[in-house]
Amino acid sequence: MNSPALSNDMSELYSSIFTWKHMPEQNDVIDPDIPETALYAYEQAISLTPRQAVLYYHKGQVLEQLGRKTEAQTAYAEARNLGHCC
């Protein structure tokens, strides 16, 4: 199941979870579960398409947002190993 088209679709979907923006009409409340949800989504996408570098890159971004810097660096390293420029 290493379809590039499927990987791109998943990357766009999961990127939208990660890049969720705070909206003023939401009464200044940001759901603290969003990064955890995004991390779970990236881990699921990676399990389906483990050779897609961009998924590791986005996983690194989420881990960094969660303050898990060592794990983020590992994810970024895997993204680079798979050819992603990050």
Rank of each mutant, 00 (worst) to 15 (best):
M1F: 01
M1T: 11
N2R: 04
N2G: 05
S3I: 02
S3K: 00
P4R: 03
P4Y: 05
L6W: 08
L6Y: 14
S7G: 13
S7Q: 06
S7E: 05
S7I: 14
S7A: 15
D9H: 13
M10W: 07
M10P: 00
E12D: 15
E12V: 15
Y14V: 15
Y14G: 07
Y14T: 14
Y14M: 09
S15N: 13
S15C: 13
S16W: 10
S16D: 11
S16Y: 11
I17P: 02
F18L: 11
F18R: 10
T19F: 05
T19M: 08
T19D: 04
T19N: 03
K21N: 06
K21F: 05
K21G: 12
H22C: 09
H22R: 11
H22W: 10
M23S: 13
M23K: 13
M23Y: 10
P24G: 12
E25T: 13
E25S: 09
E25V: 11
Q26Y: 06
N27H: 07
D28P: 00
D28A: 10
D28N: 10
D28M: 08
V29Y: 13
V29L: 13
V29E: 08
D31K: 02
P32R: 08
P32K: 12
D33A: 15
T37Q: 05
T37E: 07
A38L: 04
A38C: 08
Y40M: 15
Y40D: 09
E43Y: 03
E43L: 05
Q44T: 03
I46C: 06
I46A: 05
S47G: 02
L48H: 12
L48P: 01
P50E: 00
P50F: 04
P50K: 09
R51G: 02
R51A: 11
A53E: 01
V54P: 00
V54G: 00
L55W: 03
L55A: 07
L55T: 01
Y57E: 05
Y57I: 00
K59M: 09
K59E: 01
K59H: 03
K59F: 00
K59D: 01
G60A: 01
Q61C: 11
Q61L: 14
Q61T: 11
V62P: 00
L63Q: 06
L63C: 05
E64Q: 04
Q65R: 07
L66N: 02
R68C: 07
T70V: 12
T70R: 12
E71N: 04
Q73M: 12
Q73R: 12
T74Y: 02
A77I: 07
A77S: 14
E78Y: 08
A79D: 03
N81L: 11
N81H: 09
H84D: 14
H84W: 14
C85S: 15
C85E: 15
C86W: 09
C86E: 12
